[in-house]
Design a binder for these strands. Sequence first.
DNA 1: CACCATCGCTGCACTCATTGCAATTTTGCA
DNA 2: TGCAAAATTGCAATGAGTGCAGCGATGGTG
Lengths: 218, 218
Amino acid sequence: MSYRVGVTTGPGLRERKKERTRQALVNSALGLFAERGYEATTIADIAAGADVSTRTFFSYFPSKEEILFADTEERLALALAVIDQRGPQDEPVDVLVRATTTIFDRSERFAQVLGRAAPIRLRMLFTVPAVQGMALRRLLSAQQRLAARLQTAFPDRLDRVEAAAVVGALVGALVNTMLTLVESPEQADELVAGGDVEPVLAHLRRAVDVAVRGIAAG
Amino acid sequence: MSYRVGVTTGPGLRERKKERTRQALVNSALGLFAERGYEATTIADIAAGADVSTRTFFSYFPSKEEILFADTEERLALALAVIDQRGPQDEPVDVLVRATTTIFDRSERFAQVLGRAAPIRLRMLFTVPAVQGMALRRLLSAQQRLAARLQTAFPDRLDRVEAAAVVGALVGALVNTMLTLVESPEQADELVAGGDVEPVLAHLRRAVDVAVRGIAAG
DNA sequence: CACCATCGCTGCACTCATTGCAATTTTGCA
DNA sequence: TGCAAAATTGCAATGAGTGCAGCGATGGTG
């Protein structure tokens, strides 16, 4: 058993290759989804496009849906980090709103900075039930993690239940509002394609406001 | 073309037979799910248990998941009705909370009055991703309908976006809290099997409170 | 009552996602 | 160079879901 001292041995060839294959799969999938649509693309197609066997696809992603969410973990991590960096004067709300809008800013929001995945995913969200289901399951799990982290950041302001309720209220308001504003894949496409984003954002701000000030505040 | 006057001709034989088959399918499915679990039950099994062909299953339910939700429409209708019956003095919050707790009372809450479906569904919710996804999709759609109805009930208090935000906040808080409180299928089983429900309800009341008074109220 | 247009049920063939298994190939390291 | 672990692959099988065409039951109609 020898130790690797001195040299910064990055990830070995194995790791790098694996990462490349992963990327190839994601690229292949996104390309095909965008071109022919989700249903019309088989896993065999995706694998072929990445030069691996069909069977190998499943050692990278457990299902066809998952590949559309390959980038989300990292975005959640970003939001969690925002929570960790609470200032001493911050209220839980401040931090949470900041974290949440970070996600929205960098994701379901509109193309520019975004990777390729988000716009395609957004479209599939409207057209493929399985994808919508997966998105919602991930959203719920993300909420749980946000709540846990928020509670950690404010140990003497919140208990677990309060944290969950707070996160749920904010995210719930945002999501339901978003769905009300953007009802069809066409509208989604339009926004992604650089439509006028401001009115949507304005409404989302109102949604945040409702959650923050309470339903009763009307 | 003749008119059916006088006699109250109920649904014809065709309809009645169809309804019976539908019930048979639901019963068969629930029985098998409870007995062997969801994955271990094939659609062929379900169909066999209802004395119809496999193919016929799909003319009643579009997918295996759907059969677990055969009873939900009616419960949503109940909640919508509660909204319609707003009193002149009611605030939107009052009505909404009343409607929402109606749903919780009669469903994901605990066995007693409930049909057979709810407890089984609750268990599958934790163990079968596809079922969870379906549940969340339905929940979102229910939120949209609740929002629309609430807006109709308070035309000059709410616009569509506010209504969506309000409903989203309340339901979001409830759902995320619920998930925090009940984390495993075992806990769910326990509650359904008549465990002590009061502490859970107490927490849910706090969640409602958070949503009503606002995240900031801490 | 006989007749016909629907409607529902069924079997069949097919596509595709997903999984377990066993054989083979690649990579990391001694 | 040589071996053990890890990754890739092909193969076979299961099960969900769909389109299609034939067949019998049902509900009027004359």
